[in-house]
């Protein structure tokens, strides 16, 4: 079978994440086969037939028999068509693609997750992986922000589930808020620095808008995090997902197969073309 031809899958459930529903989480089940096994940080190519294909990080954590979950913000042609899709509709899925967070190497370490907006989607896969094998990791800290309280994704996990996990703390912030928010109002990198985490034996994993990642990395460096202990996951235009179409190179690396997960040390040696 041609690896570029997707498998037909059915949307089983659609959950709006934000008040304006510009982010929705789709539960997807392949029609003809089991869900492939995947690691936190990997992505899949999703098709709306007749519209096209785009890469989307897998936000669920692999569990045999469980559907795939994708949290998708409506930003372009394919994501727009996905947002028009209804439960029961067919889409195409192929994957899993790309590298992943090196969770095995991180066993015993403390992990600091820093997310902004829809950037929490790939981190959610990782966070739930760590939560499920809680004993394998040290302290877990999540710093997460969105433009406003209405734009926070995965509210059930943020407010109910993750704060209950032993040795895990959730720190939320928003860029701007009205009277309905009594939490922190600050940009993620500022809030992060205010909270000031120790870099000792800690890996910082960040994902969000490019500008947030840039300032977050600067803040982490000021806090003493070494370049190889700062990890991020990149987004870029892709066509094939398998290293063949030439699209997504940054220098001699292809985000689709060498990434999307990179350490800041790796990124520093590449051209700033992302």
């Amino acid at each position: 079978m041609d690896p570029l031809v997707p498998e037909v899958a059915t949307i089983r459930k659609i959950t709006p994440e934000t008040a304006s529903a510009d982010v929705k989480t789709f539960e997807v089940q392949p029609d003809e086969s089991e869900v492939f096994s995947y690691e936190p940080g990997q992505y899949a190519m999703l098709s709306v037939f007749g519209v096209g294909e785009c890469p989307v990080s897998i936000t669920s954590t692999y569990e045999p028999g469980a559907p795939l979950e994708f949290s998708i913000k409506e930003v372009g042609r394919v994501t727009g068509a996905l947002h028009e899709a209804q439960v029961g509709h067919k889409i195409g899925v192929r994957g899993p693609y790309g590298n992943h967070f090196p969770v095995k190497q991180w066993q015993g370490r403390r992990l600091l997750f820093i997310g902004g907006g829809i950037g929490l989607a790939p981190l959610r896969s990782l966070i739930n992986y760590c939560v499920r094998s809680r004993e394998n990791f040290g302290e877990l800290q999540l710093v997460y922000g969105a433009r406003s309280p209405k734009d926070l994704c995965f509210k059930e996990e943020l407010f109910d589930n993750w704060p209950e996990v032993s040795g895990m703390q959730v720190h939320l912030t928003v860029d701007a808020a009205g009277d309905d928010w009594d939490g922190e109002v600050a940009l993620v990198p500022d809030f992060l620095e205010e909270l000031s985490f120790s870099p000792d034996d800690t890996i910082a994993v960040t994902c969000g808008p490019p500008i947030m990642i840039r300032f977050t990395i600067e803040a982490l460096k000021r806090m003493g995090f070494a370049d190889h202990k700062i990890v991020t996951t990149l987004e870029i235009k892709m066509q094939c997902g398998v290293g063949n179409c030439g699209r997504c190179n940054i220098g001699d690396k292809y985000v689709c197969v060498d990434g999307p997960v990179f350490t800041y040390q790796e990124l520093s040696s590449l051209p700033q073309e992302y």
Binding site: D2, V5, V48, F49, G50, K90
Partner: peptide, 15 residues
């Protein structure tokens, strides 16, 4: 690469 019938429904793909 492939032909398909249907968009969101009753999809049939042929390589």
């Amino acid at each position: 690469l492939m032909r398909f019938e249907g968009v969101y429904d009753q999809l049939d793909i042929k390589e």
